[in-house]
Simulated assay, not measured.
Amino acid sequence: MRQAVTLYVRCVDTFNRWVGRFAMNLLFVMGGIMLYAIFSRVVLGMPVNWVMEMSQFLLAAYYLLGGAYSLQLDGHVRMDLFYSNFSPYRRAVTDAITILFILFYLGVLLYGGLSSTEYAWSYNQKNYTSWAPPMWPIKAVMTFGIFLMLLQCISSLFKDIAIARGKPLT
């Protein structure tokens, strides 16, 4: 059983590290799109109407795909008033308890994301703007990001339980 948990943790951590590093580069893509919009409007005199929405889509993909990687790096904000004074055992127990709440929240969010993505796909939902892009691609990316966050939380739960038992996963 321990080998299966270790394999799960290693696979999820590796995959989320890869996706997180990919997501970091989305900021450069977004910057390039914004520079293109400025160039197109100022130099060519031809403004483009899709830039703002595309930037919003890329930013949503950036933070949702990068969320699991941020959790893996322990980069999320936490109230450190008491936590920093806890022993490793107590930190692991505290994290394990709070992760249970996060798992519930992410489960509900994933259910809503799947439902919303399915609706956007079935009815060819479009955004109500002049560009009118289809919504299913960004909703699918967002749902995938939530799923990755859920997998990473389970990985973190396994790590915290192992630390609380005195046998950290390597």
Rank of each mutant, 00 (worst) to 15 (best):
A96I: 00
Y105H: 14
L73F: 07
L64M: 15
Q72S: 10
G107D: 13
V77N: 07
E53Y: 07
A92F: 02
E53T: 04
Y105C: 11
D74A: 05
S70C: 15
Y63I: 10
M54F: 09
L73P: 03
F57T: 13
I97A: 12
H76G: 08
I102P: 00
R78T: 15
T94R: 09
H76W: 02
S84W: 07
D74T: 03
F82K: 03
R78Y: 10
A68E: 09
R90E: 01
A61E: 05
L103D: 15
L103T: 10
L65E: 00
R78C: 07
L100H: 02
L65M: 10
S70W: 02
Y63H: 09
G66P: 05
I99S: 13
L65R: 12
L64Y: 11
D80S: 13
L59D: 09
Y89G: 00
P88W: 00
V77G: 08
L59H: 04
F104C: 12
D95E: 08
A92L: 06
A92G: 01
I102F: 09
N85K: 09
M54Q: 12
D95W: 03
G67W: 01
L71E: 01
S84T: 10
L71K: 00
Y89V: 00
Y63W: 11
R78Q: 11
Y69I: 02
D80T: 12
L81V: 15
Y69D: 05
Q72Y: 07
L81S: 14
F104T: 13
F86A: 11
L100I: 03
V77C: 01
I99N: 12
Q72W: 07
Y69W: 15
T98G: 06
D95Y: 00
A61S: 02
Y105W: 11
A68S: 13
L100T: 10
I102G: 14
S70K: 02
Q56L: 11
L81H: 04
Y69L: 03
D80V: 13
A60R: 02
Q56K: 09
L103Y: 01
Y89Q: 02
E53R: 06
P88G: 03
M54N: 11
Y62F: 15
M79E: 09
A61C: 13
Y62M: 10
S87I: 02
G107Y: 01
M79D: 12
R90K: 14
Q56G: 15
T98V: 14
F82N: 13
Y105L: 11
R91G: 03
Q72I: 04
P88A: 08
A92W: 01
Y105K: 05
V77Q: 12
M79A: 07
L71P: 01
V93R: 05
D95M: 00
Y63F: 15
L106K: 11
V93E: 08
N85E: 12
